[in-house]
Amino acid sequence: MDIRHWKDLLARRLMFLLCVFVLSLLFCIAWGLYHKASPVLAAGSWQAILFSSDWHPSQGRFGLAGFITGTLWVTGLAVVVAVPLSLLTAIFLAEYCPVRLRDVIKPVMELLAGISPVVYGVWGVLVVVPLVRDHLMPFFSGRFPFFPFASDNYTGFSALAGGLVLAVMVTPFMISLMEEVMRGIPFGVRESSLALGATSWQTTKKVILKKAAPGIVAAVILGLSRAIGETMAVLMVAGCALQGFPRSIFDTTYPLPALIANTYGEMMSVPLYDAAIMLAALILLIITVVFNMAAWGILLHLERRET
């Protein structure tokens, strides 16, 4: 065998190994987190950790429920804001927008998705937090003094601020996915609806959205899973003071990723503290993996149906 075939063989083996290595990272990380988290699971019941919001590490109480619900609270707010915004924009891009305009809008939107989270964080502190503090919070909390608006947090650093910043961050991603799903629908389907005298809006509402629904759900889930893991920007605007279970969109909140980033490596003298943080990370990982798998499952199913 001459030298070039050896090189070919070597390259093939090497690249395969690298590929396996990258794939194994996920399992290594998951196993490592589980291994590191196991002391805290051994020390107390997992129910006490998952369902209690009693977070007093120095007394050995590690209830993560406040952080978990905090994460869901912020993410939920982000979705409520981001989904209508993304969906309507995606509809415009896929169904109404002339190709030339779309060719300009899409790259700009992708730029938006590429901005560093810390920049969004700064924008959040400078724009969104004051907006919540000076306008949204006094208005809603004053007029609707009940759940989920009533609050006595006048700083503006709140779940809503976190949700708004997150929404802006995941919107470009969701738009681009949704738009792809809608444009993947065969042109003839639109044509046959329009040929019967339907307007574009009727066609979109009755045909396109119906066909695209699973894909849109998948796009929302993928956006969600991105939002859940987002750390920096949320950490900067959400207040990060533990309030137990969320009671208001204007209260401060403390999501899981922020907890991990804020405290890991700081209070290591407290027994089991690092194990509790590892458990938080493991929970985050599991949520993200499950969401992603669900979304890709839906998208794969759609792709098969079309072909």
Binding site: P186, G188, V189, S192, L196, G197, T199, K206
Partner: peptide, 19 residues
């Protein structure tokens, strides 16, 4: 929309609506 209502279209591949 009224013009199109006056003409039925059959395309190369049948395009049934998702319903």
């Amino acid at each position: 929309t009224h013009l199109r209502k006056r003409m039925g279209l059959l395309s190369q591949r049948p395009q049934v609506l998702p319903m």
